[in-house]
Simulated scan of single mutants.
Amino acid sequence: MLTLTFFVKTLIDIYIMVLLLRLWMQWTHCDFYNQFSQLIVKITQPIVGPLRRIIPAFGQLDTVSLFLALILAMIKLPLLTLIEIRILIIDIIYLMVGMLAFMKAAGELMFWVVIVRSLLSWVSQGRSPMDVVFYQLSEPLMYPIRCILPAMGGIDFSAMVVILILYALNYLGMDLFSGIWYRL
């Protein structure tokens, strides 16, 4: 059962992150014609497309992607409980825990975007089409820190500060919700 739990949790987490990435890409006005952007749209379009006819968008906010990510986060824990102990428990507490799972997934997505941007800056040095998208995604996180902490000796420490802040928030979640944080 642990293997099945791992696969289901991983698939749900990845799809939540892809939906949040689509939302984030629209919010930051990423290049839609980039190959990476097209991949994210193609992965999410079979579910997001039909729901767009039912759920309207609010301005620049992609409400369908946000709604789907929230729904997946809310059903994740009851589904994992069903797999582990073969009992379906739907409780308002599990649904509220879904909000925590949503916030944790958003934090993990931010972490991975900053890590990938940092690695791409060392490896491809701006020659990859993905560099542009990851720059556009991570710049709203890194620019405010760069304004406070300028580059020292030609080295930009803003990515490291963002990662440290995300780690601190993750540890805060572990402290505040110690019983459930690890299952999210």
Rank of each mutant, 00 (worst) to 15 (best):
S118V: 07
M103G: 07
L88A: 07
V48W: 01
F157E: 00
P50K: 02
G98I: 07
A105Q: 12
S121C: 04
F58A: 14
L11N: 02
V8M: 05
P129H: 01
G179Y: 11
I40G: 03
V64G: 03
Q60H: 13
V162H: 05
L149K: 00
I180V: 15
A168M: 11
W112Y: 15
D91R: 10
S37T: 03
V123Y: 14
T63G: 03
A159F: 10
A159N: 08
M160N: 07
N170E: 14
G154C: 09
V162T: 05
D62P: 09
L141I: 10
F7V: 14
L21W: 01
L109P: 02
L68I: 10
L70S: 08
H29Y: 13
S65N: 07
Q26R: 14
C30M: 06
V133M: 05
L51M: 12
T28Y: 05
T81V: 05
L164F: 15
M110P: 00
S158R: 10
L109G: 04
I180T: 13
F134E: 06
E108G: 12
L119I: 15
Y171I: 07
R53Q: 13
D175C: 01
V64S: 02
Y182V: 04
S158F: 13
K104I: 13
F134R: 05
R52G: 04
I145M: 08
L95A: 07
A159T: 02
Y143R: 12
L61E: 00
V64K: 02
L137P: 03
D13I: 02
S118M: 13
M160E: 02
I89V: 14
M1L: 11
L169F: 15
V41N: 00
K9R: 15
I163F: 10
R117M: 05
M74V: 05
L70E: 06
I75E: 03
Q60N: 13
I14G: 01
L11W: 06
A151F: 02
R52F: 03
K104R: 12
W112I: 09
L66T: 04
R22W: 04
R52A: 06
L109R: 05
L88I: 10
P56M: 09
P78E: 10
M99F: 15
L109Y: 08
A101Y: 10
T81R: 11
L137S: 04
A101C: 10
F111E: 03
Y182W: 08
